[in-house]
Design a binder for these strands. Structure first.
Lengths: 108, 108
DNA sequence: TTAATATATTGCAATATTACGATATATTAT
DNA sequence: ATAATATATCGTAATATTGCAATATATTAA
């Protein structure tokens, strides 16, 4: 087969898996860290910052946007993308919940 | 090409991407949530809990273990896997850092 | 209007992931 | 020792992802 059996899981599980998938590439992590570093919208210099070709970066930005992790669009001749706090909050909540709920007395 | 250009990114970026990859599947999210729910080691009943065949679940467990998200082994005739707090802490820290550092005055 | 610049889309080759049947391995029960 | 049970591994088909060259599109500059 090879296709993920999405229909058999909850929408919450699929949402978390999709968000994780959007982050499952070092270039996309680098884009997020760059957005944090510059503390504003991305400008075209992301293309010179990353060791990847322009179409590849454009594709990664599209995936991050589809997942809701970044938001924005091109403005004139330059990119204007920034982090979407609402979506990132979902991930933070998930991991915070795990850390606080997990049984510290691991048995293995 | 098709292969991720791992060598061009920092080990931290690759680590986060690999952790995200381990979570990028609803079955693996379901396994993690099940581990949280039962609040102990997994027993063989995970195979009856998930809508997937036994070899598939075994493979997902292996991937979670390789990523360091769960730890353990089989014990006699049953599984004994539990969540690895140390690794999950890496993810929580990453998202907490983002949420606290991100500029709330988004420009797009 | 034309040229220059910036980003997006298309098409494709290489590789990775997903799922499972068949089978192997290992432990426990008889 | 043999059977029963539980988990892992192998092999494979279907699908998804990665990266880029070529090209399209859109905005700004001249």
């Amino acid at each position: 087969m090879g296709i993920t059996k999405t229909a058999f899981f909850t929408s919450n599980q699929n949402q978390l898996a999709n968000l994780a998938k959007a982050l499952a590439n070092p270039a996309r992590i680098a884009i997020i860290e760059y957005l944090l570093k510059v503390d504003s919208c991305i400008c075209g210099d992301i293309v010179t910052e990353l060791p990847l070709a322009q179409p590849t970066i454009s594709q990664h930005l599209k995936e991050l946007k589809n997942a809701g992790i970044i938001q924005g669009n091109i403005e004139g001749n330059s990119i204007c993308y920034c982090l979407n706090t609402d979506t990132l909050q979902i991930l933070q909540s998930f991991f915070s919940k795990i850390i606080t709920k997990v049984n510290k007395n691991k048995c293995c």
